[in-house]
């Protein structure tokens, strides 16, 4: 609908009508300006800083891409990237696995389905800080899970992942999956409910077994759900900050650093603004690489 056609119904345009024509644009302009300035302007600002030698205070003389070069020789950054790789892969993989399996089982006309769904999803309402705090206690090497299992009779059981620099990143996976898997279950379940029944009935009539129906008909038809879930989880993984801060604080040492905590540490506690900005730009690049193709395909879809 166009404002000009709608106001043509009124014979003569008064000043007030002109105002009415401009009103919608006027109303949306604060958001428009905010998006331009606070999103795009700030991205350019950060990009600019990443090309300078800024340390504690911003400097605006462009020196080139040397901060990016420094990133790739910085041990801590490489650890952060490796951690993101490990965490991202396991987090996404396990969430998708649990999500699909539980959604299929929940779709078997289960009594108390509603109650189970409520239980699976409630962690999603919590702050990652709460999740981190809870799991930090559960995984406590002295008094937590380890003690529980020992008291069950396994005297030599040890579970010190939280303070083991090689294993600590896996505790982040455990807590992250706990928080987000219910959401993936919900997404897959709504996907399953949308599958066309008639195709399934036809397959049943043809004598196809249940696992076969799932494997060759239902799961392939969930492709779009897989795609968008993958995108959402990838996005959550790259942005992960709170959970790591609360659960391990990036430690022991910097063993569980990820790009988000790396950026925070360098920019705000180590006062290396230029270097921190470069790491933020790399994060942006990573997110855009997965989001833009997704948005493009979503927006092109006929509505």
């Amino acid at each position: 609908m166009d404002t000009t056609t709608s106001s043509r119904a009124i014979p003569q345009k008064s000043l007030a009508d002109h105002f009415e024509d401009w009103l919608p644009k006027l109303v949306i302009s604060p958001t428009f300006l905010a998006a331009i300035f606070f999103v795009y302007g700030y991205i350019i600002w950060t990009a600019w800083l990443s090309l300078t030698k800024s340390r504690m205070l911003p400097k605006y003389d462009i020196e080139g891409f040397f901060q990016y070069g420094k990133l790739w020789t910085n041990d801590r950054w490489l650890v952060a990237l490796t951690n993101l790789g490990i965490y991202g892969t396991l987090f996404i993989g396990i969430c998708l696995g649990i999500g699909l399996l539980i959604a299929i089982l929940l779709d078997q006309r289960i009594r108390a389905e509603g109650a189970l769904r409520t239980i699976y999803l409630y962690p999603m309402a919590l702050s990652f800080i709460v999740t981190g705090t809870a799991w930090k206690w559960i995984l406590n090497p002295g008094l937590g899970l380890e003690k529980l299992v020992r008291e069950m009779g396994f005297e030599n059981f040890t579970f010190g992942w939280l303070t083991d620099s090689d294993m600590a990143i896996y505790t982040v996976v455990i807590a992250g999956v706990w928080q987000s898997a219910g959401f993936v279950i919900a997404l897959f379940l709504s996907g399953l409910r949308g599958v066309d029944d008639s195709i399934i009935k036809a397959a049943q009539v043809d004598g196809a077994s249940l696992p076969r129906i799932y494997w060759s008909i239902i799961i392939p038809s969930l492709r779009p759900v897989f795609f968008s879930t993958l995108m959402i989880l990838g996005h959550i993984a790259i942005k992960s900050f709170d959970l790591i801060m609360a659960l391990t604080g990036g430690g022991p040492g910097y063993a569980t650093d990820v790009p988000a905590t790396f950026m925070y540490t360098y920019t705000f506690t180590r006062n290396q603004i230029g270097f921190g900005s470069a790491s933020a730009m790399v994060m942006l690049g990573g997110v855009l690489a997965i989001v833009i193709p997704y948005l493009y395909s979503e927006l092109r879809k006929p509505r």
Partner: peptide
């Protein structure tokens, strides 16, 4: 539509990229 797509990207950016200017 262009404006809306622009805004949508704002939902997805990692906020690390706007922290310092803000």
């Amino acid at each position: 539509d262009v404006f809306f797509s622009m805004l949508l990207i704002g939902c997805f950016i990692p906020f690390q990229v706007i922290l310092l200017p803000m």
